[in-house]
Design a protein around this nucleic acid. Structure first.
Length: 279
DNA sequence: CAAGTTACCTGACGGC
DNA sequence: TGCCGTCAGGTAACTT
């Protein structure tokens, strides 16, 4: 599930359960994720350490501890994290477990194993984290992510606008679903060349991105309030899809038929009337 | 340098 | 029932 809103909701949900808890041990399934999980190193360096913070950057979660060490999580396509009782049954794809000092565990579950668990143990963790995100685009809600910035980045690019806003080096956190949803809401055809958008269109698109992501966070947050033992996959945001997965259905704006095309290997949905090819 | 392709994995689903 | 192809929310390393 994890695009920016889902990762943000998971972050907020987990924070309450993790803050000021002490990690007592770390266990791994031994399966390879996107990168090898440094299980032994985490076990050695995190045991007995208190958790100071959990935050989000792009689609990543960052957990920091009192000793300065940090874990950077990425949920890939199918990853999920939750807090469980230590005695509860370990599920098939629970690949990493961080046992806490109150008989609960943080569990990282990921069937498809496109996710990743990076460990930063140096004293200069802050600097390394900064380095880790050096090539990541600005957060959509930040001042840096302005119309001027996006226009400038888009100027030399002819790729489809949908691919462009999904590029996390340009802007962080937008995946296939929210790319589809925001372009529909802004009335912009997903195959428009990035460089062809006017300043007014960029202004509309950016505000639509912000509004849509914010709304999705609010919806997710309202339903997934307790992560303890929960699967965490019951987000309310799905109710708000207007275009994603709706090929052949009628557009909510104009009643026309929603089309599905392939852009860069990803399913793309649009309304030919509300999102015209040329302006 | 931009843009396109491929690889990494499992599971769910539809057709036969 | 099962076998097969297709598809799935992401990212980075390739090639062109």
């Amino acid at each position: 599930m994890p695009e920016l809103p889902e990762v943000e909701v998971i972050c907020q949900g987990l924070l309450i359960h993790l803050l000021d808890r002490t990690i007592t041990s770390v266990h791994c399934s031994g399966k390879q994720l996107r990168a090898t999980v440094p299980c032994k190193e985490m076990q050695t360096k995190l045991s007995g350490k208190r958790i100071c913070d959990l935050s989000r950057r792009a689609k990543y979660l960052i957990l920091t501890t009192e000793c300065g060490a940090a874990i950077i999580f990425h949920l890939g396509m199918t990853g999920n994290m939750g807090i469980f009782d230590v005695k509860s049954t370990i599920k098939k794809h629970d690949h990493v477990r961080w046992t806490l000092d109150n008989n609960t565990e943080l569990r990282f579950n990921d069937p498809r194993r496109f996710g990743a668990v990076h460990f930063i143990s140096t004293e200069n963790a802050a600097e390394e984290i900064h380095h880790f995100f050096a090539n990541t685009g600005p957060e959509p809600f930040s001042r840096t992510c302005s119309v001027a910035y996006l226009t400038k980045r888009a100027a030399p690019r002819k790729i489809a606008i949908k691919k462009f806003i999904m590029d996390n080096h340009v802007i962080a956190g937008i995946g296939n679903i929210y790319a589809n949803e925001t372009l529909f809401r802004a009335g912009i055809h997903p195959e428009r060349p990035s460089c062809s958008l006017s300043k007014a269109e960029w202004k509309l698109l950016l505000s639509t991105i912000r509004k849509t992501l914010k709304h999705a966070i609010a919806c997710g947050g309202s339903t997934i309030s307790d992560f303890r033992g929960a699967s965490g996959d019951g987000g309310y945001f799905q109710m708000n899809f207007r275009i994603y997965g709706k090929a052949g259905q009628n557009c909510l704006n104009c009643g026309g038929v929603i089309k599905k095309i392939n852009i860069g290997g990803r399913s793309s949905f649009f309304c030919p009337t509300c999102q015209p090819e040329k302006v």
